[in-house]
């Protein structure tokens, strides 16, 4: 069944239907929370793509920020508010930058890769903070989006944004699942295990890592566009290292076996943070840390290992 070519599309349609159904019954604050969780889940999905090849990016805030600023600047400078167009532009700019950065990054592994990605995002943070023409550290406000000519307001705007986020998340998730199941996807897992062997089989490890990094940037930019439009404000904090840390948190929480788990983990993070913030305003990070510790101890391969056939025998291997 899972090998059928219809499995991924059918799952995508079902998940989309469930998500939209939920949108009709949840209150507006929860809809906003879900929209943000899915947007951030998209960025974390990028880290998961890299994790499958044995790499962790501590700088996905770079593309999250670029996506958000593209939506803000385009709306303010050119008057473009259509969310589809802004999404395409955000992804395009992210992919172009990632293509350039990938040439540098694909030669590094482990902590060096992680630190380089972090430094790239902090360069953007520093640059944006000093650019008073686009708001400096205050950032800038973003106009409400339109949806192919439809300009909703109030709850309709929140629902439209949620609907769009569900749609692009499901499409992106489906495409990445197809990639994970593909020859290239399996090669990424092989690179994680034994890079030398993959080179000696005739595949280019650098090319595989570059393409993974570019895919990660694309979903990162997309998440940034949605987050910027949902919040209605963008600032350099989007590229700050603590923002990137959140995405890594989600990726570790989910593991790299299940795409659904990435979005589920992102929702868990948003919910835990929102409620912890409410009930333990000064110690909510402590709650979050304890939660992550429990997951790492009980499910070393993340929440996704609960659903995946490719369940591993713990983190010791």
């Amino acid at each position: 069944m899972t090998n059928s070519r219809f499995f991924v599309p059918v799952c995508c349609v079902l998940i989309f239907a469930v998500l939209v159904g939920i949108g009709f019954i949840i209150p507006q604050w929860a809809m906003f929370l879900a929209t943000m969780a899915l947007a951030k889940g998209l960025v974390a999905l990028g880290i998961v793509i890299l994790m499958r090849a044995g790499l962790v990016s501590f700088g996905q805030g770079l593309y999250f920020c670029i996506g958000a600023y593209v939506s803000g600047l385009m709306a303010n400078w050119t008057g473009i508010t259509d969310i589809v167009l802004l999404s395409i532009l955000g992804v395009l700019v992210s992919v172009i930058l990632a293509t350039i950065c990938a040439r540098l990054l694909s030669g590094y592994r482990g902590i060096f890769f992680a630190m380089l990605t972090l430094s790239l995002s902090m360069i953007l943070y520093g640059a944006l903070s000093k650019m008073s023409i686009i708001g400096g550290t205050d950032g800038l406000n973003v106009s409400a989006p339109t949806f192919l000519g439809y300009a909703p307001e109030g709850r309709a705007l929140g629902f439209s944004l949620y609907f769009y986020t569900c749609l692009v998340s499901v499409i992106a998730g489906g495409l990445i699942r197809v990639y994970f199941n593909s020859e290239r996807g399996l090669t990424a897992l092989a690179i994680r295990d034994n890079e030398l062997r993959v080179e000696y089989l005739g595949s280019s490890v650098k090319s595989a890592i570059s393409s993974g990094y570019i895919m990660a940037a694309a979903v990162g930019g997309l998440g940034g566009v949605i987050a910027g439009l949902a919040i209605g404000h963008v600032d350099p904090e989007y590229a700050y290292w603590t923002t990137s840390g959140e995405f890594v948190f989600v990726a570790i929480l989910s593991g790299f076996f299940s795409i659904t788990a990435v979005f589920a983990s992102s929702i868990v993070l948003e919910v835990v943070r929102s409620f912890s913030n409410l009930y333990f305003p000064n110690t909510w990070q402590l709650v979050l840390g304890v939660f992550l510790l429990i997951v790492i101890l009980l499910l070393p391969n993340g929440l996704g290992s609960l659903f995946s056939k490719r369940r591993r025998k713990g983190g010791s291997e």
Partner: peptide, 13 residues
């Protein structure tokens, strides 16, 4: 898949 000239992003492994 490595033996192919170019492994595919879509063709299932």
């Amino acid at each position: 898949s490595s033996a192919n000239e170019q492994a595919s992003f879509f063709r299932p492994a």
